[in-house]
Design a protein around this nucleic acid. Structure first.
Length: 424
RNA sequence: GGAAAGGUGGCUGAGCGGCUUAAAGCGCACGCUUGGAGAGCGUGUGACCUGUGAAAGGGUCCCAGGGUUCAAAUCCCUGCCUUUCCGCCA
């Protein structure tokens, strides 16, 4: 959510920024609602003030056994008026709030212009592409011929976009989770948390999934619970409605969680393999920082994600998303894309974002400045560290051998009972 | 699932419908005192909205939402959450 005062005072700038993101938002409606709200507020508060004074007077008169009936009947009218104005105010405030909840964040000045994916800017390459003396296969072929990924039975058990892992694939998934958590906790200074995988509506609203993106979520029938689409939601909401001490900041959390996404609107996209599933595992990093630190922290967060790929020996590139490709809540996002030789493409394997105070304002996450005691919103950031299923894809495709086997990267072997290879 | 008790500020904890602008204590901050610390004494101690150059001022907030009343932390209803006991359960 944007700061209402900032919006009021920088209407043209906001309009311009939103246009760059490809967002058509009617800011005149905001102006009208905002004015209405303040007008009503002024009159209702004047009446309240009058009533408060009169109430004291009535109390005094009663105690002195004097007649208060004329004042009481007068206040009866005033109360009636207050009630009406309150109703109006509530309507206007609801409208205003609903409007603000649907306005996306404003991008940082360093974000490049552009309309979509194709205009993202590559800022870094890491590692090297493997060289194959044969035609590398796609991971779904590798996984099926090794009998470690069973797409047919996944579909039987649950449906399309669900997969059954078997044997060393299951072990590999679990090894990756532990490897990533150990790396971020042991070397990058994060604290591990394990959260609920279902959350309530407030949490979803706090991080920006609701109200706008309800169709992307799985909802529990008959209860107001949602399956999390990412651990970002429960982890960021850890501090919802809290005021932190400045000395606590920055806070770094890392969490493993399964993620559930309806993938509404992606019919026919990535239908084969592990790339786009209704359920997948992810290790997520989340940071709470002071405003002046958040862009440095974004660089470090992105480097933490890249480090996972470096340790696994997988080539990647890092792109800065252009204005038109940014997510709803983000002010700036780097995507880390792993090289997938079987498909001959780079695929997003981590997305690292600075939300500035957008989520903090929605979720009321604040901190107290030491020097003056003032309360401010924190900045929140998060990034995948990494998407586990897609990392399995990258390993299968990058480490495949001519004989159909797959070498296990050394960093993972201690997590896989010493196994160094997956073969028939 | 059955029964009961509760939800008040950073914490503990008062609060017969009007003198609550939420008592008191603890904590915290500042000052006095001290060689220094402690004790003692004094002062202060929330958030949000509105307003302004900044203020003053005004308003809201005692879990949430409704209701009764001239007036609600206080009375009524609904929901949520917590705790205890019983049942069931990985």
């Amino acid at each position: 959510m944007l700061d209402i005062k900032y919006l009021r005072q920088n209407l043209d700038l906001v309009r311009k920024k939103l246009r760059q993101r490809g967002q058509a938002i009617d800011l005149d409606r905001f102006l009208a609602l905002d004015k209405q709200r303040r007008d009503i507020l002024l009159s209702v508060e004047t009446l309240r003030n009058e009533r408060n004074d009169a109430s004291k007077e009535i109390g005094k008169l009663k105690k002195e056994k004097k007649d208060a009936s004329s004042l009481i009947s007068k206040m009866s009218d005033v109360s009636e008026k207050i009630k009406q104005l309150d109703d109006n105010l509530k309507t206007v405030e609801d409208d205003l709030n609903n409007f603000l909840l649907l306005v996306p964040n404003i991008q940082h000045e360093s974000v490049p212009a552009g309309n979509g994916e194709n205009e993202n800017v590559v800022i870094r390459l890491g590692g090297e592409k493997p060289v194959f003396k044969f035609e590398p296969k796609e991971h779904w072929d590798i996984g099926e011929s090794l009998n470690i990924l069973d797409f047919g039975r996944g579909a039987k058990i649950a449906g399309a976009r669900f997969t059954l892992y078997r044997g060393l694939a299951a072990a590999l998934e679990r090894a990756l989770i532990n490897f990533m958590l150990d790396l971020h906790v042991g070397e990058h200074g994060y604290t591990e948390v394990l959260t609920p995988f279902m959350v309530n509506r407030e949490s979803m609203t706090g991080t920006g999934q609701l109200p706008k993106f309800a169709e992307d979520l799985f909802k529990i029938e008959g209860m107001d619970y949602f399956l999390i689409p990412t651990a970002e939601v429960p982890v960021t909401n850890i501090f919802r409605d809290e005021i932190l001490d400045e000395s606590q900041l920055p806070v770094y959390f890392v969490a493993y969680s399964p993620c559930f996404r309806s993938e509404a609107g992606s019919y026919g996209k990535d239908t084969r393999g592990l790339i786009r599933q209704h359920q997948f595992n992810k290790v997520e990093m989340v940071k709470f920082t002071r405003p002046e630190d958040s862009y440095d922290e974004l660089e470090k967060l992105t480097a933490n994600a890249e480090e996972v790929l470096s340790r696994l020996g997988i080539h990647y590139r890092t792109v800065c998303l252009c204005a038109g490709d940014l997510g709803f809540s983000s002010a700036k996002t780097y995507d880390v894309e792993a090289w997938m030789p079987g498909q001959n493409v780079y695929r997003e394997i981590s997305s690292c974002s600075n939300f500035e105070d957008f989520q903090a304002r929605r979720a009321a996450i604040r901190f107290r400045r030491e020097e003056n005691g003032k309360i401010e919103f924190v900045h929140t950031l998060n990034g995948s560290g990494l998407a586990v299923g897609r990392t399995v894809v990258a390993i299968l495709e990058n480490y495949q051998q001519a004989d159909g086997s797959v070498i296990i990267p050394e960093a993972l072997r201690p997590y896989m009972r010493g196994a160094d290879k997956i073969s028939m």
